[in-house]
Design a protein around this nucleic acid. Structure first.
Length: 1016
RNA sequence: GGGCGAUUAGCUCAGGUGGUCAGAGCGCGGUCCUGAUAAGACCGAGGUCGGAGGUUCGAGUCCUCCAUCGCCCA
């Protein structure tokens, strides 16, 4: 049989359907066509935040990918050209740790000595894209259209060269500098730990020494206190839990406003904050009390002399913003080993006198910078003393020796042990030390104001991110530490002269070649990574000595932040493409990227171009398990994407993600929730579609060839609703709100199914073709094909399947894919808002009517004579007047009237709602009504019998009945009706032939035989 | 310690600018409807809209404080 539409089975298996569609897209190259058919001068730019492909993609990756996809598909249909390159992040600790694990090593030393940097980095390179294929497969399977063939990869030489160029721009603007900072450091791994890593490694109740140490006041200091202390030896008492930091001591800090006691103990005088005196000394006599500021400037004897151990003296240079530099030979640091004032000195614990070692503490370091203090670092990065009596000892082990030494010299006042929380390395369990070391910084604080101002040009979704999380982050901006003492990363292109200390930044491979001492080394350089690039030495432009590269690599966040430029190998290639694609119109990632990618993108574009790098940013929250708990491997509650797709399909998963909650709200996720979303929405739509195709084929409806018919009120309502929905979905998607857009579609589909189709069923079922039937077909067809377009960005498979059958297959001028179609335009002239709200009221009244019937226990199939309706306002009577026939038809009631007074409802079965609407139904049955009810009941039974007999919807039958006289009467009156409804060409009273499908039935206590047989 | 967000029926969630807004879906019990429907309708149980104050004629809706949860920062 030649059907216009391909028959549709209501029992659809979406995953299988989706596989077919994927094949279709691939064969026809639809993705590329969807980009190429749009004009080049109307671009909408999307940046893909590069994920790591060194592990399987998780459900949260799917979440991000589908939200990206829905927006860019929408923009494509709106006529924009939306190129979308995939990108892969490859550098950094995640990759390195993975390789370390494989090799079974844990320290930097092992990498350098056992494995070698070349081999190590080679393994990183092989490893980091290990799951690339799975990423690509999943990306395709969930229909995230992304150009993976042209993906940018951060480890490529071109990418690195662009990053060098970026750094050079900043260098030339004077925005890059090297400085010391105190950082948590693992002496065993030989590396700085990030805050996140530190947070993982705290251990409670760690025992540590707790000591009170006496610093002897120098002679000239004691003289200034002579009126009080006379010629007695005088000491400042400081408290510490880290004896090993004492050799690094270069100052003592007091609170300038606090009171300090000078207390005599034996023949000595000890100085302690007054309020802490009782907790420090037992037996003393108070000589005097002085304010802290009076102690400032007093010199004291250092406890140790690390300079004699070979520790180079450094100094914070106040003339250079506190930069740390060597102390010139013969020069004395003015404030070395004196008392300084500091507001952070606590009077809650200790002695009110704080031992300051700028090499070992953040506050100490800041104070050193502020006061221009001496800086001594007697410990190497492995945590061992570099010389002197403790040479080679690990700091924590040296504690004991130091305390013994102090005791011997009578400088240890008291010694205890405390239990406190202390950070350990999360990888190797070594206690961390706070250690000042040089790092490279980008001076983002230089344009903090611009960062904040430009942020105001960005539209954030949700909007509160702008002044909230991201705005706060910018307000607290500190310079960006971009160096890492690691291996697998973009080598910082900074070279330093070994003789005069001159520093230079290289901005390209060409520049490197030019400045190299041996050009051929550069020419043979096939890989810009370490260790190869380290071999390149440059000629110092100042003194012609060799310059060597600094050992650090770049923070991996720098890589992705430079992606707008580096993905194009800008400025060495693709200048035009870059300018056309900057800044991005749209990015979308997890909210945790405020400190990560969002920030690095913003910082770099602000510094380079005084521009934003993205205009719209959609933020995503976490995805939780069914119970609302964070998914984690250790909990074992991780939901993998593949099984969900295999069970319910990608569309169902996408739809759930879009509509369950706004993207920036943490959402629960489980197979069950996706399944519910499938049943509630996708299947409802599919069934409307299947219904349409079934009857359209029977009636040979062709959208281009069939007459339009005359639209009924119901049709006008459906079209109103459709255009209203188009307007709403467009508005919401333009506001980057796929959730409310999707919910609007869902509402439309529910109304279409549960009211339009339900109320229109008989219009499609009529035997004769008339105007009303054609209008119904055109209306439903229009709704379905328009919904296809609205759904295309959300559920690209379902939309394609329906589109192929309803349009592409039969309309020669139709684009070959729904994803090549234009976004529908709402026609405001077709939106009758009053009709929409009136219909809502009609549905409400109908619902009450069903309630009233239900209470009276009378089936809908039994016709009733009278409906009484009570509304709240007279205008509602007008509104309902036209719609009453629909209500009566649905409720199967013959006539109606308004309830003007309360007693109009008396004696009827009633139902009412809180709002004040009420209906009553007259439940009295006349013989005529009863008989009509029987007729409808009979039709119902015959239909079920037809189904049971396995007949096609359009099959004609011969109907047999036998055994109850009452049926004859029914047939006498309603025979035509029964014949028409059941497609009976003949109705026979009497025993059915053996071939007929017969069943024993009962009605009102009367048994009888009913049978159907396909008509020859 | 600071900031942001959340807290509405057993579960998932709606509830512009304060005035029938106490709702939907799932689940449960019952009834009904159906030649599109793995669906749908109706009835029922289930909520002092996290708590306490305040503003107001009137507050899930505005303000303050508190509690719990999550995230970010220190």
């Amino acid at each position: 049989m030649d059907q216009i539409f391909q028959p549709v089975d209501s029992k659809v298996h979406f995953p299988r359907l989706e596989e077919e569609i994927l094949r279709f897209w691939r064969e026809r190259n639809i993705f590329h066509k969807s980009i190429e058919q749009r004009p080049k001068d109307r671009q909408f730019t999307f940046y893909e935040g590069p994920p790591y492909a060194n592990a399987s993609p998780g459900i949260h990756h799917v979440l991000a990918r589908v939200f990206k996809d829905v927006i860019i598909r929408f923009k494509t249909m709106q006529g924009y050209r939306v190129p979308r390159r995939a990108g892969w992040d490859t550098h950094g600790l995640p990759a390195e740790l993975e390789v370390e694990k494989q090799l079974g090593i844990t320290t930097k030393g092992e990498i350098e000595e056992k494995v070698g940097i070349a081999q190590f980095n080679n393994l990183c390179r092989q490893n980091v894209m290990r799951y690339l294929q799975e990423w690509e497969a999943l990306t395709e399977r969930i229909a995230f259209w992304l150009d993976m063939e042209k993906a940018y990869v951060t480890y490529r030489n071109e990418y690195i060269e662009s990053c060098w160029w970026v750094l050079k721009q900043l260098w030339d603007k004077g925005l890059i500098y090297r400085d010391y900072r105190t950082v948590p450091h693992c002496p065993r791994c030989g590396t700085t730990l990030s805050d996140h890593e530190v947070a993982q490694g705290y251990r409670e109740d760690t025992p540590d020494p707790s000591i009170w140490v006496k610093f002897p006041l120098r002679e000239e200091g004691r003289k200034r206190l002579a009126p009080i202390v006379g010629d007695r030896p005088t000491f400042l008492v400081a408290w510490t839990t880290t004896p090993w930091t004492l050799p690094g001591n270069t100052a003592l800090a007091v609170h300038p406003e606090a009171a300090y006691a000078l207390a005599q103990v034996g023949e000595e005088v000890l100085i302690v904050a007054s309020s802490l005196l009782p907790f420090t000394l037992d037996d003393y006599s108070l000589l005097a009390t002085v304010p802290g500021r009076q102690l400032v400037g007093l010199p004291y004897e250092p406890l140790f002399d690390p300079m004699s151990w070979g520790t180079p003296p450094l100094q914070f240079d106040p003339a250079a913003e506190g930069a740390l530099g060597p102390v010139p030979p013969g020069h004395q640091v003015e404030k070395a080993h004196t008392i300084v004032a500091a507001d952070f000195v606590s009077l809650d614990e200790g002695t009110g006198i704080v031992h300051i070692a700028p090499a070992f503490g953040g506050e100490d370091f800041q104070l050193g910078r502020k006061e221009g203090l001496l800086y001594l670092q007697p410990v190497d990065p492995r945590g061992r003393f570099i010389g002197g009596p403790f040479q080679g000892q690990f700091v924590k082990e040296a504690d004991e020796a130091i305390m013994e030494d102090l005791t011997r010299r009578g400088l240890l006042l008291r010694r205890e042990t405390i239990l406190h929380t202390y950070p350990f390395c999360w990888r190797c369990g070594t206690p961390l030390i706070y250690y000042a070391k040089p790092s490279w910084y980008i001076k983002t604080t230089a344009c903090k104001e611009r960062l904040i101002e430009l942020n105001r040009q960005i539209d954030w979704y949700p909007s509160y991110i702008r002044d909230g999380r991201f705005g706060n982050w910018l307000e607290n901006n500190v310079d960006w530490a971009i160096s890492r003492e690691r291996f697998w990363g973009i080598p910082l292109p900074f070279w330093e002269c070994q003789s005069c200390g001159h520093q230079a930044c290289i901005g390209s491979v060409a520049e490197l070649t030019e400045m190299a001492i041996e050009r051929q080394v550069v020419e043979k350089l096939h890989d810009l990574h370490r260790p190869f690039v380290d071999e390149v030495r440059l000629r110092c432009p100042q003194c012609s000595s060799p310059m060597v590269r600094v050992p650090e690599v770049a923070d991996v966040w720098f890589d992705s932040g430079a992606m707008p430029y580096a993905q194009w190998h800008y400025p060495f290639e693709n200048q035009e493409e870059f300018h056309r694609s900057f800044p991005a119109d749209f990015i979308c990632e997890g909210i945790d990227q405020t400190r990560g990618w969002f920030y690095t993108l913003h910082a770099l574009s602000t510094l380079l171009w005084d521009s934003v790098s993205f205009r719209n940013c959609l933020c995503l929250e976490l995805i939780l398990d069914e119970k609302g708990e964070k998914m984690s491997k250790s909990r074992g509650n991780v939901v993998e994407p593949w099984p969900v797709i295999e069970a319910h399909g990608a569309d169902a998963m996408r739809w759930y993600m879009f509509t369950s909650s706004p993207p920036w709200v943490p959402r629960r996720f489980s197979q069950g929730l996706v399944a519910e979303s499938l049943r509630r929405f996708l299947l409802t739509l599919w069934n409307v579609y299947a219904f349409f195709v079934t009857y359209a084929n029977l009636d040979k409806f062709h959208p281009a060839l069939s007459p339009k018919g005359r639209p009924s009120l119901l049709d006008r309502w459906a079209i109103s609703l459709l255009h209203d929905t188009v307007a709403k979905v467009t508005r919401e998607l333009e506001a980057y709100n796929p959730t409310d857009a999707g919910r609007a579609i869902q509402e439309m589909v529910e109304l279409l199914s549960n009211w339009y189709v339900r109320r229109s069923r008989r219009r499609f079922w009529k035997a004769e073709s008339d105007e009303d039937k054609w209008a119904a077909y055109h209306t439903l067809y229009t709704c379905l094909v328009t919904l296809c377009r609205l759904l295309a960005p959300f559920t690209p498979f379902l939309a394609e399947a329906v589109y192929q059958n309803l349009e592409a297959r039969i309309l020669p001028q139709a684009p070959e894919s729904v994803h090549l179609c234009d976004w529908p335009q709402p026609d405001p002239s077709l939106i009758d808002e009053k009709l929409i709200s009136d219909m809502r009221l009609a549905m409400r009244i109908t619902s009450l009517g069903r309630g009233a019937r239900s209470k009276a226990g009378i089936k809908i199939r039994q016709p009733l004579s009278r409906l009484v309706v009570k509304v709240r306002y007279p205008v509602e009577k007008e509104a309902l007047a036209e719609l009453i026939p629909l209500i009566l038809d649905e409720l199967n009631i013959k006539s109606w009237q308004w309830a003007n007074r309360d007693d109009d409802l008396e004696g009827l079965a009633t139902a009412s709602d809180e709002a004040g609407y009420a209906v009553g139904v007259d439940t009295s049955l006349t013989p005529e009504l009863k008989q009509e009810g029987l007729a409808r009941e009979l039709v119902h039974r015959v239909q079920n019998l037809r189904k049971a007999a396995g007949l096609e919807i359009s099959d004609r039958i011969v109907l047999y009945y036998h055994g109850w006289e009452g049926l004859r009467e029914v047939m006498a009156t309603y025979g035509d009706y029964v014949r028409q409804e059941t497609l009976s060409v003949e109705v026979v009273e009497g025993q059915p032939p053996k071939e007929a499908w017969a069943q024993e039935q009962q009605l009102d206590g009367h048994p009888f035989i009913l049978a159907v047989q396909r008509a020859g």
